[in-house]
Design a binder for these strands. Structure first.
Lengths: 225, 225
DNA sequence: GTCTATAGTCGGATAGAC
DNA sequence: GTCTATCCGACTATAGAC
């Protein structure tokens, strides 16, 4: 059978292996994670990795594709809403701000939530030393998200969304969110937190929203005529 | 000879190995970097790692210590200046802002400069999955830096520097800088940059300084009575 | 103190049984 | 299509020559 049906044993094996792959590649990196550990965590035999993905690298690329799909799916609602908004003739400043705020909170949620943190670990590792997997993730998920955020931010503050300046502003703003994910150890250590749970995320989001509004309103006052 | 003098063959071997270690642990991680490659890059024989550092892990810890020392040294001037300032009775708002700005630019420089980027790669990997090396780096260099920045930021905006709120603000602000280092691939890809060189760093710093001022002045207006 | 040669271990890939 | 047993290469660590 060349096509795997949903729920078939082969399909399940693939899913389990990808799932275990996200976990262990995220935690230990491409080299640090072993095929033995991955197959054991997936409850599959070692040979299954070579059989379904031809090699460890093949599994890693499949993990990258799975991550791209996951992000696309997680952001599809808000991205759709943004596109509808941007297609309108009349766009209010408040709606700009509302959508930007919504994306910031969505992004923050996914970066810090324990279930999705392992995904952002894989992506962070790719940014540290990119492999073939990086373009897969970037072109299909991160790129479109950054582009549309730049449109909204540029529209709000009154600068060309394609300018370097707006792109750098966008990265700096999204960077604030990312930093809480990346610097997790330092933050937990300084703040005496054990983990970033619901309460901690709420404190972080409060500050993020405060910053977004100060920055965007300040920049708007400066550039918007 | 149990004590190695400066310039002795043993001392040079240690230095070369640590130097190669920073490079390769940063680029490939603890597992991805091999002792073969490290000793080759260091122009030392493979047994030297075990001899001088007892194991690969020993070398890794020595690399972490070297990084902590490097950061302490790189920040000693500005940290000293900050401590002198904080010990004063009368502290002007302008001086707060000037010192914060100076630290931001120093940090930005070290995070993005090609010569020191490899250091931040090792640290980023430690934040992704901390080992014994993390506390070495944190306690001796990052921790003190964040603590004093929180004092200055809290002082400027008029909130208790020990409060969670000020610490989160501090991390968000320092996070903007960090993000350009971490998200390097995404940023270069979106902005069509090959590398973050001098000109690119200048554009980034311009935006960072603009953000710092908007944020700190906005927060100060809000909280400072 | 330094280095080469090698032992011992582990991980990825594969052959072949079922 | 699935899994076990095994191979081979690469890695770390060490023994011992110099």
């Amino acid at each position: 059978m060349s096509i795997y049906h949903q729920g078939s044993k082969g399909q399940i094996a693939r899913e389990q292996l990808i799932n275990a792959g996200v976990e262990l590649f995220g935690e230990y990196g491409l080299h640090g994670a072993t095929t033995r550990d991955i197959s054991r965590l997936a409850n599959q035999n070692i040979a299954s990795i070579a059989y379904y993905f031809s090699s460890k690298e093949g599994l890693y690329l499949a993990v990258a594709q799975w991550i791209a799909d996951f992000i696309q799916n997680a952001l599809s609602e808000i991205l759709g809403e943004m596109e509808v908004f941007l297609a309108q003739e009349e766009k209010t400043a408040d709606d700009h701000l509302r959508l930007i705020r919504k994306m910031v909170l969505t992004y923050s949620y996914h970066l810090c939530h324990p279930d999705t943190m392992r995904i952002s670990k894989v992506i962070s590792r790719e940014q540290l030393s990119p492999t073939e997997a990086y373009p897969v993730i970037h072109q299909q998920s991160l790129g479109p998200m950054y582009r549309i955020m730049a449109k909204l931010i540029g529209g709000y503050i009154g600068l060309d969304p394609k300018s370097n300046s707006v792109n750098i502003h966008t990265h700096a703003i999204m960077g604030e969110i990312l930093a809480f994910r990346i610097n997790k150890e330092t933050i937990c250590s300084v703040l005496n937190w054990q983990e970033i749970g619901e309460d901690e995320l709420a404190s972080i989001n409060l500050v993020l929203i405060e910053h977004i509004e100060l920055l965007l309103n300040g920049l708007r006052a400066k550039y918007h005529g």
